[in-house]
């Protein structure tokens, strides 16, 4: 048993830092992110015998973390099912450079989004799912997923523009 626990600790040490960021992207606070990660790793260890070695272990662990996050948010009713079909306005596709932003600033922006926007944005922009897949994962329509993503994107762009303006004013004043 002690040996088994040591191996579990090794696995935890290997992926905990990456998974912490995954959870931080989905959770509104770091406390909830830790709860997600705790539950996620318990599931990983409880179901490790189901891992078929047909995909990278990191991907398998990441998927469990994401599904755990979705489940927790669903249980907390943070992901209200919406059937919005309203189209978002045109979004400028101007080049964006996030090099000047720290990871905490970027995570802060994502965490400040409404839960349903945050979910859709994470799944689409960072995880790489398309809107149909996201709609089926979250139990919403594809159109709703697109609409919510557009809103999330607008909000984030607004945040970035405001940050840029503050930065430029700060530089000019100096």
């Amino acid at each position: 048993m002690a040996g088994k626990r040591d191996m579990q600790r090794l696995l935890y040490d290997l992926y905990s830092k990456k998974m912490m960021v995954v959870c931080l992207r989905y959770a509104p606070t770091s406390f909830e992110a830790e709860d997600m990660m705790q539950e996620g790793f318990v599931k990983v260890f409880a179901n490790i015998q189901n891992f078929k070695r047909d995909c990278p272990l990191e991907f398998w662990v990441r998927r469990i973390m994401i599904n755990t996050a979705l489940k927790q948010l669903r249980q907390k009713s943070l992901m209200t099912v919406s059937h919005e079909t309203e189209e978002a306005g045109n979004i400028a596709s101007a080049d964006v450079n996030l090099t000047g932003y720290s990871m905490d600033e970027l995570l802060g922006m994502i965490q400040s989004l409404a839960p349903r926007y945050r979910m859709v944005f994470n799944l689409y922009a960072i995880e790489g799912y398309n809107h149909k897949e996201i709609g089926e994962m979250l139990g919403i329509s594809e159109g709703t997923s697109k609409s919510q993503y557009s809103r999330a994107r607008v909000i984030l762009q607004g945040m970035l523009e405001r940050q840029d303006k503050i930065y430029q004013e700060h530089v000019i004043s100096q």
């Binding site: 990456k18 964006v96 990871m103 922009a125 960072i126 993503y149 557009s150």
Partner: peptide, 22 residues
């Protein structure tokens, strides 16, 4: 709308680059 556009823009790419393996 751009939401209907499946093409990924710079914003998504930048966020993915910065956060996916963070």
């Amino acid at each position: 709308s751009s939401a209907n556009n499946q093409k990924r823009h710079t914003l998504e790419e930048e966020f993915q680059r910065r956060l996916f393996d963070a």
